[in-house]
Design a protein around this nucleic acid. Structure first.
Lengths: 122, 122
DNA sequence: CCTTTGTTTCGACATCCATCGATCCCTTGC
DNA sequence: GCAAGGGATCGATGGATGTCGAAACAAAGG
């Protein structure tokens, strides 16, 4: 396509309203908008490779993991990168570059919100 | 920080562990098999229409809903049926025919299990 | 039997998406 | 400046998936 890299599409790191979407799924039917937003988060965990990457980050010492620590999930490196990007876009992970390596960590509020929608609070 | 409990392998006290799959995502990385299983459940909620249908059933009076009660989500009726089937295959819903109508209800244990995988991240 | 109404299945189609190799970008070290 | 290695992006591709209309199936009533 284009080599026009001047288009400002999305600001770097869309801050995004992180938490406040949606009551427990049992409380009332979701609106179309709410469902659209929320489904993105569930869809992000709806792939086996992404789910593994997510649990690798979530369970990693210090609550964060370098890409090099979690790249052994049976797919190529570009694919790993692609999935991490998806998880990031869904708001489930954040990333930070420190020197040579890029570290990913879980966004706790978002994941907690998903859990609450499923009624895990009992 | 709280618990470093030894994990009780696989048999004691599983009152209604209808879902044999998987500890909280923070506890340890999922295996490929576990991820495959679990991703199916999250994927089922990863579509806006399915998520709406699910919340319609979950929040409906009596804990169940007839297809005719929840068919107004903006897609054709065959599509509704297709999505309900997907939710059923994922183990999130069950169905029962009573006379003319078919009623769907939530499978609580499965949903609770999903919530627990996410809930301990707070 | 035939008709009506609720629900599922079938076939077809367009779109999305996971995956890869190749390539490019970034940082560090020589 | 240049080489090396970690990560991200690009372009292509095969397979999965959401959607619909038409048709089939099931139960209830005339």
């Amino acid at each position: 396509m284009s080599n026009v890299k001047v288009l400002p599409l999305l600001e770097p790191e869309a801050p995004e309203a992180v938490v406040p979407c949606c009551p427990p799924l049992t409380e009332r039917p979701l609106t179309a908008d709410e469902a659209e937003k929320t489904a993105r988060m569930f869809k992000a965990l709806g792939d086996p490779v992404r789910l593994r990457l997510f649990s690798l980050v979530a369970s990693h010492e210090g609550g964060e993991a370098c890409v090099c620590d979690i790249s052994d999930v049976g797919v190529s490196q570009p694919t790993v990168s692609h999935h991490l990007k998806k998880l990031k876009e869904a708001g489930l992970l954040t990333s930070e570059r420190r020197g040579t390596w890029v570290y990913y960590r879980v966004e706790p509020a978002v994941v907690a919100a998903m859990g609450q929608m499923l009624g895990s609070l009992g």
